[in-house]
């Protein structure tokens, strides 16, 4: 196993702190180094001090100054403007906020954004190719009417991709069980299962 990056000698990861009070977060793609805002590695972090967090979201790098309390979900929605990821409960009970972090499906509401520093995040906005061609899972959801109101849909689709990649979409019963963390109140469940079955093969290759 490789060692975590950004190690310093004092047993603490070299965090970057931004001086000043809480400010509206900078949500621009990484254009220039923010070295001037980086405190020395030995500096002690302070309460309410914004934390600089680097995220790679849908293959684009972002550097954000965040309240440490900000969930990955709120970072995506409120700080980057990627509102495709939904807040349905904010407590890990519905699955609407599912995204892929380093390829694995997780609940972005239960993850502090700062804990994802340096990670690769894929959201619903990152699935379709740049020419507009939908990911097979997206197309399958349309084909099988696997949603009604559409609110849980981004989470269902991300979870469906994660489920296939984990190898847990081998049978209809498997899909039902491993998709049970995504509540669909409109109850499109049978159609969601059909959609994942359709997209399973192409998703594995994607």
């Amino acid at each position: 196993m490789s060692q975590p990056s950004a190690l310093s000698t004092n047993g603490l990861s070299r965090r970057k702190f931004m001086a000043g009070t809480v400010s509206a977060a900078a949500a621009a793609p990484l254009l220039a180094s923010r070295a001037e805002a980086t405190a020395p590695a030995a500096a002690q972090p302070k309460l309410r001090q914004p934390v600089i967090t680097s995220l790679r979201i849908n293959k684009q790098a972002y550097e954000l100054s965040l309240d440490a309390r900000t969930s990955l979900l709120d970072a995506l929605r409120d700080h980057i403007g990627l509102t495709g990821t939904k807040k349905g409960c904010d407590h890990g009970q519905c699955g609407a906020c599912t995204v892929l972090v380093d390829g694995k499906r997780v609940l972005s509401c239960l993850s502090f954004a700062v804990m994802n520093d340096g990670k690769d995040v894929t959201t619903i906005e990152g699935l379709a190719s740049t020419d507009g061609k939908l990911h097979p899972m997206q197309q399958a959801f349309i084909d099988h009417d696997a949603f009604q109101c559409g609110y849980c849909t981004p989470g269902q689709i991300m979870s469906g991709i994660g489920c296939v990649n984990e190898g847990h979409a081998e049978s209809e019963n498997d899909i039902r069980e491993y998709m049970s963390g995504n509540i669909c109140r409109c109850a499109a469940y049978p159609n969601i299962v059909a959609a994942i079955l359709q997209a399973r093969g192409e998703t594995k290759g994607a």
Binding site: T83, G84, T85, T123, L134, Q138, F141, I142, D143, G150
Partner: peptide, 14 residues
């Protein structure tokens, strides 16, 4: 298919 289906599967339904 629903006329707003594409918006809903791409996260573009606001």
């Amino acid at each position: 298919p629903r006329v707003d289906a594409r918006l809903k599967v791409t996260g573009q339904a606001h």
